[in-house]
Design a protein around this nucleic acid. Structure first.
Length: 532
RNA sequence: GUCCCUAUCGUCUAGAGGCCUAGGACACCGGGUUUUCAUCCCGGCAACGGGGGUUCGAAUCCCCCUGGGGAUGCCA
């Protein structure tokens, strides 16, 4: 069977990294197996779906290199097919109208099937007994079974489930006398009769369950008596997600459904709908969710978990792609930084983890840094140009390319660009702690002054000459070699880390260095010299 | 409450009964290279949630508990 998978987002807002990771895994699986990666826009939520959101999604996919196969399906264009499917189920008595709402409109519900002999995904588990709350009635009708169980404190905890969940149902009173039996009343109930049984303290029934083998999580099962018949067409006539989703997966001949594990509950129902409609059930793979740094699901509060935000912050698509692929999946060896081809080659759904993964910005940053480090100078300069203005740097400044080359190995994302500022501006951001440590030493102060004075007599200011000049001054001032490096770095940049010092000073130039030495001393005297 | 899923260093993960004294990566700490900074290199810290089984042997299999997530919608 050839692989056909789909990415089926609802375009109701910005594209979230969780969503795009689902797309990535689908894409990886399709490309690994030589299958097809289809796209379906689930735009049935008319009020929240927007054209902008759809376009933004396409853009994100393109940015990440997620090319799709075949035509894009818009779910709203298939409403009549969805309704036709619902009509079919109604005609076959596999669906029924529920209680009317306040407007007198009834929704159409899918009936979880009573006869399951021909459904391979359903199996009988055995007989189950449940304790009932004696003061609550047991209601049995075609729409399902309602009852209440006693809580630990004896309170009535209401429960309801589909009729099919209670094969061979019997109810017993306190004397263990059978006060209701489903067998014998079944036809009447299915024809519309309702039974209310009072005083029952126990029920017994044959439990049946839907089961399937998930490619990631293994065998999964859910008993019928924990499921309810579900609405497939709303009172207003519009099809519900469950129906539309199944119909469109049939329409697109989807072979494997790879989606977040928040859908496993739906899968049990969807399998039944596929069966009811007479179609084969696809293979399922439920991938773990990703959670925020608090271990909670991403919410609106984590405003920066949208794909577009990562782009704006200077993350490279291949780095984000690589990082996201490694959240819940690994190739099985120690590889982490991998090319797209390597990932396609190694990707297997069976190797996807089944537990949630926490998103780690720091690790993503590190990976982005690795991708940045291997860019060509031209590419890097181009990349930096995109983010310079936002960081307060003019990308057209004459020194821009030189500085970029110098800083590439220490750039992890767009935020790193603010550390380039001292090359372009005399207004430095001073890092107090190292400044205080160095300048409180009078020898250093004197050395700095001596260096400033020596500057005036210097002919030329290349990196080599810068180094030589520092050594000369140190030696004349009786300072150990290198003692002036750190103070001069502070004068040049305001902080204790940065690019190669001699290159940096040469780039800044003699005159500006002289001014910056003065400025540093003044800053120290005015802000840091006294007390603490 | 009930049902479903889930559980290895702080984080991402390797691990499918003996190769585990639990491996790698990020972060962190220390050292080397660089008379400076980043890169780079070396080293260190640090985990099988708890309790029962099964077994000669369990991180790996089973059960219970606990924690986390999801479902219990005429949202998707």
């Amino acid at each position: 069977m050839s692989v056909r998978v789909r990415f089926a987002p609802s375009p109701t807002g910005k594209v979230h990294i969780g969503n795009i990771r689902t797309a990535i895994f689908n894409w990886l699986f399709a490309r690994h197996t030589g299958g097809e990666f289809l796209l379906r826009v689930e735009d049935t939520d008319i009020e929240r779906s927007t054209r902008e959101a759809i376009d933004a999604m396409f853009e994100c996919m393109e940015w990440l290199g997620l090319d799709h196969d075949g035509e894009i399906i818009y779910q709203t264009s298939r409403t009549s097919e969805h309704i036709a499917a619902a009509q079919q189920l109604l005609a076959e008595d596999q669906a029924y109208y529920g209680e009317p709402d306040e407007n007198g409109k009834s929704a159409l519900l899918f009936r979880i099937p009573w006869d399951t002999d021909n459904i391979p995904a359903v199996r009988t588990v055995g007989t189950v007994e449940l304790e009932l709350h004696p003061e609550s009635p047991l209601n049995v009708s075609a729409a399902g079974v309602e009852f209440a169980q006693p809580s630990r404190k004896g309170k009535a905890m209401p429960a309801a489930a589909t009729l099919a969940g209670f094969k061979a149902l019997k109810a017993f009173d306190a004397d263990n006398k059978c006060v209701f039996e489903l067998d014998g009343n079944l036809d009447a109930i299915r024809a519309g009769e309702k039974f209310t049984v009072e005083g029952a303290v126990k029920i017994s029934f044959t439990r049946r369950e839907v089961f399937f083998t998930d490619m990631i999580k293994g065998e999964l099962a859910k008993p019928f008596d924990s499921m309810k018949d579900l609405v497939i067409v709303r009172g207003n006539g519009t099809p519900v997600f469950h129906l539309a989703n199944v119909c469109d997966d049939v329409f697109q001949h989807i072979s494997h459904i790879v989606r977040g594990d928040d859908h496993v509950e739906n899968t049990y129902r969807h399998i039944l709908i596929f069966n009811a409609l007479g179609y084969d059930v696809p293979q399922y793979a439920h991938m773990p969710m990703i959670v925020n740094s608090e271990g909670k699901p991403f919410s609106k509060r984590d405003g920066d978990a949208f794909v577009g935000d990562f782009r704006e912050k200077g993350y490279l698509p291949q780095a984000l792609f690589n990082y996201l692929s490694l959240l819940g999946w690994s190739p099985g060896d120690d590889r982490e930084k991998m090319t797209r081809d390597e990932m396609v080659e190694a990707f297997m759904l069976e190797r996807v983890k089944s537990s949630a993964a926490q998103f780690d910005y720091t690790k993503l940053q590190n990976m982005n840094g690795m991708y940045i480090a291997e860019m060509s100078t031209d590419d890097f300069v181009q990349w930096a140009t995109c983010y310079a203005t936002a960081a307060g740097i003019d990308p057209n400044a004459p020194l821009f390319r030189t500085v970029a080359e110098l800083m590439q190995s220490r750039t992890r994302n767009a935020e790193s660009l603010v550390d380039w500022k001292y090359f372009f501006s005399d207004e430095l951001l001073y890092n107090d702690k190292p400044i205080k440590k160095q300048l409180k030493n009078q020898d250093i102060r004197d050395g700095l002054t001596a260096y400033k004075n020596a500057l005036a007599n210097l002919n030329g200011y290349t990196p080599e000459l810068v180094e030589k000049s520092i050594r000369t001054v140190e030696s004349a001032a009786g300072l150990d070699e290198g003692k002036l490096n750190q103070p001069l770095r502070l004068a040049a940049s305001g902080t204790n880390s940065g690019a190669d010092l001699y290159l940096t000073m040469a780039l800044i130039g003699k005159e500006k260095m002289s001014a910056r030495i003065d400025a540093l001393c003044r800053y120290f005297d005015e802000n840091l010299s006294s007390g603490n």
